[in-house]
Every structure is written in structure tokens, then in C-alpha cells.
């Protein structure tokens, strides 16, 4: 029993990171129907920005996270303007391939500029403490990751539900052309979506740095793919779905490694992707509208 609770703690902090990345995927998909494969790499850039703001500027972890979020928000907007906007009216496969291109560009540009080796996240920014609660080992970084992830998700929910920008985003997502007719600036709304999604990814990147202690230019690939699975599982384009999907994948991986065989962990996550696409392509939270695939 105690082991199970420990595994759930492990799964929740892993899931929180997946959920944050999945949110960016799902927001972008919801609004322009593009699977932004560069999203995991934006997370990587966020981790490096956080790293440099701690090592070079000597900021604490909260400020580092804010700087990373701001820089990546800008990066997201630039990526959208340069790479995706010119292709907005072309075929979906063209944008998809562009997204893969942007992903490779970010990875190898970082390797070119900073080298392929891992960088060690400075431990001065965050002192790890372990709490022993009823035989469970709970780390303050578990709490940090979980609380800041949930906090950011609540802020996101507020923005989408109760602000004008959020309303515009929902409108564009629902019907692009009708939104234009209602006087909504579609370009601006899409830029905002990329900014918010990329900022969340940057926050996740800094969390990965704090949590696992080391970052490298290819660190975004696997979490990016897992988060993509999470987004599809929850129903791509649906924001609460991405959160739930993230946590489900995190817990699932933990339980497979803990009670099944650690060798099957990745097979199970990607098996879920195949299964959900076969059985319920709209995802757990998706409604069968007939137009989504």
C-alpha cells in the first residue's frame, strides 16, 4: 500500500510535466489544426534559458521560470510568424512537415551554439529537501513541480474562460471565418495562443531542469512525444483533456515500471496512442462532431 502511494506521488509529478507540455500541443491544435512538433524543443529552449538566467544572471528559480516563459512566448510567436503563418492556407501536411523542420532546426541550432553535452542545472537555485511522511519520501521538488503546474493550469483556465483574449481564442477555434466577421483579429489571437502554449512549455522545461538536474539539446524529443500522446488521449484540441491525459500517461508509465516491467514502459505509452486512435480517435473528452479526425 505504502509502495503504491509512493508510486502515485512519482506518477503525479511526472504527469504534471507531461500535462504542461500537452497543453501547448492541444491549444495550438485547437486553434489552427496544426500538430506543432517543435513544441518539445520549445520546452528545451525554455530549460536552457532558465539555466542561463540562473548561472549568468544569478536569479532564483521563480524569476528564472518567468524569464524562460517570456523568452519562449516570444520564440513561439516568431516560429508561428516565420514558419507557420505563410503556410496557413496550404495543405495540412505541408505545415506538419514544416513543424518537424522547425523542431530539427531548434535542436541542432542549440547543439551548434552550445555543444551536444548536457549542462548541469545549478543546485544553488533549488535546494532539495526530503520529507518523510508516514514512510513516504516526498521531496520539496515534487511539491514544487506539482503545485506550479497546477497553478499554471488554473491561470490558463481563467484566461480562456473569463478574459476577452480567451473568448477570442475559443471563437477562432470554433469557427475561424465567423470570428473574423465578428471583428476578432485572427492573427493576433493565434499569436497569443502560441505565446501562451510556448510559455507553458518553457515552465515545464525549467521544471525538468530542477527535477532531473541536467539538460541537453535533445531533451525535448521524448517528453514532447509523450505529451503528444497525452494530448491525443485527452482529445486533441480540448484543454481539460490535455491535463487529464498528461496525468494519466504519467501515472500509467509509473505503474507499468513499478508493477509490470520497466522495459515495457514506452511500449505501453505509445500503445495507448494506437489504441485510442483505433477505438476513440476524438479522445477521452472528445465529442463525435464528425468533422474532427
Amino acid at each position: 500500500m505504502q509502495e503504491l502511494i509512493q508510486q502515485l506521488v512519482n506518477g503525479l509529478s511526472l504527469g504534471a510535466i507531461y500535462a504542461l507540455i500537452a497543453l501547448g500541443y492541444t491549444m495550438v491544435y485547437g486553434i489552427i489544426k496544426l500538430i506543432n512538433f517543435a513544441h518539445g524543443d520549445v520546452m528545451m529552449v525554455g530549460a536552457f534559458v532558465g539555466f542561463f538566467s540562473i548561472t549568468l544572471l544569478g536569479t532564483n528559480i521563480a524569476v528564472a521560470m518567468l524569464i524562460a516563459m517570456a523568452v519562449c512566448a516570444l520564440l513561439g510567436v516568431i516560429i508561428e510568424k516565420v514558419a507557420y503563418r505563410p503556410l496557413r492556407n496550404s495543405t495540412r501536411i505541408a505545415s506538419l512537415i514544416t513543424a518537424i523542420g522547425v523542431s530539427l532546426l531548434l535542436e541542432y541550432l542549440t547543439i551548434f551554439l552550445l555543444g551536444p553535452n548536457q549542462k548541469i542545472f545549478p543546485d544553488t537555485a533549488f535546494t532539495v529537501k526530503a520529507y518523510d511522511i508516514a514512510g513516504l519520501s516526498i521531496l520539496n521538488k515534487d511539491v514544487f513541480v506539482f503545485v506550479s503546474a497546477v497553478g499554471l493550469m488554473l491561470v490558463l483556465q481563467y484566461i480562456i474562460k473569463y478574459t476577452k483574449t480567451g473568448k477570442a481564442m475559443r471563437a477562432v477555434s470554433l469557427d475561424n471565418e465567423a470570428a473574423i466577421l465578428m471583428g476578432i483579429s485572427v492573427d493576433k489571437t493565434i499569436s497569443t495562443t502560441f505565446a501562451i502554449g510556448s510559455a507553458l512549455a518553457a515552465a515545464a522545461g525549467v521544471m525538468v531542469g530542477v527535477y532531473y538536474g541536467a539538460i541537453n539539446p535533445l531533451m525535448g524529443i521524448i517528453p514532447g512525444l509523450k505529451a503528444f500522446v497525452a494530448a491525443v488521449l485527452g482529445g486533441i484540441g480540448i484543454i481539460p483533456g490535455a491535463m487529464v491525459g498528461g496525468f494519466v500517461i504519467g501515472l500509467l508509465e509509473t505503474l507499468v515500471s513499478g508493477y509490470g516491467n520497466s522495459l515495457y514502459r514506452d511500449a505501453v505509452s505509445f500503445g495507448v496512442l494506437i489504441l485510442i486512435l483505433l477505438v476513440k480517435p476524438t479522445g477521452l473528452f472528445g465529442k463525435d462532431t464528425g468533422e474532427k479526425v
Binding site: 515500471s257 513499478g258 514502459r265
Partner: peptide, 9 residues
């Protein structure tokens, strides 16, 4: 980068 589940086991 995440080994906790297996380590708990």
C-alpha cells in the same frame, strides 16, 4: 531521466 517508479519497485 525518470527512474523513480522502477527504483520504488
Amino acid at each position: 531521466r525518470d527512474f523513480r517508479a522502477t527504483l520504488t519497485k
